[in-house]
Amino acid sequence: MNALASAAAADPRARAQAWLAQACGARRLAIERWERLSGGAIQENIALDVTVEGGPHAGRHEWVLRTDAPSAVAVSHSRPEEFEILRAAHAAGVRVPEPLFLCRDGDGPDFFVMRRVPGVAAGHRLSKDERLVPDRAALARELGANLARLHAVKPPLAALAFLGEPPADHARATIAGYRRDLDALGAVRGEAWPALEWGLAWCARHAPAPLPSCLLHRDWRTGNYLVHEGHLAAVLDWEFAGWGDPREDLGWMLARCWRFARPDLEAGGIGTAEDFLAGYAEGGGRATIPQETRYWQVLAHLRWAVIALQQAERHRSGSQRSLELALTAHIVPELELEILELTQEAP
């Protein structure tokens, strides 16, 4: 590594500028704005305003650079993997930030650059503010139609080989996985969660015949997409994507935990389940009635409960002290309540 390259590695902005100039085949490329956007604890998103001179990308651009945060933990896909997932979703016609460039030059953490999309993601605002969502039914349908386009992506796909083999029976495989997760937590904490075990036992008894696997987002919910001028602008946060039963994403979107200010609107506090599922069918998804998603809503609450316990444990164990992680533990009783309510009628 020459002196110039090692200087670039020490300064992420200089490194990105030099690398992007080459990637764009530019005579000159200048990053004029470099601003950290509020992001997760795992990823870091940086807003870029860029001027490119010469080459096929000449012009002014608004991009986002996504990279690992310094405190990253290996729980989700790597940036190169996420880039491939985003490409697959984009190619399938799902509204996502268009993925542009992937850097794995080894001079620093991997990063990728995508087009910046304007819009609001905050669930408490979208569910409450009629000016942001003047036509709730239309947005719910768009969310359904875009999810259907994602579900049209079927395995195998060479670019997504890192996702592994699709599960033969997604519901049963996830139930077994959550039981292992609870056992691992229980061993550390000396605790057990009978209400969650009840939910899992109910799901094991009522598991429907599996549908063929497709590409799932696995966190398709209000809070994880941008709305601009009342319409779906882009679906974000693809780090949990994987192969599985399409109904898991439907149940996740309809689960009570993402309805924010409008618990009466099943589709993420935005619209009715009927509108969301109608959009899903119009977009080419399997015709589904709301009752069919009840099973997957139970699984959704179980999944969130297990994740919440794991997050709280990161705080409790001292590995990552955080008020937000600590409070996550107090979401679990509400999830247990929802599981009891959803499972009380059927035997």
Partner: peptide, 13 residues
Amino acid sequence: LRQCVRSRLAVSN
């Protein structure tokens, strides 16, 4: 379970 959830919710939510 309902009873347990009730006392947990009284604290949490």
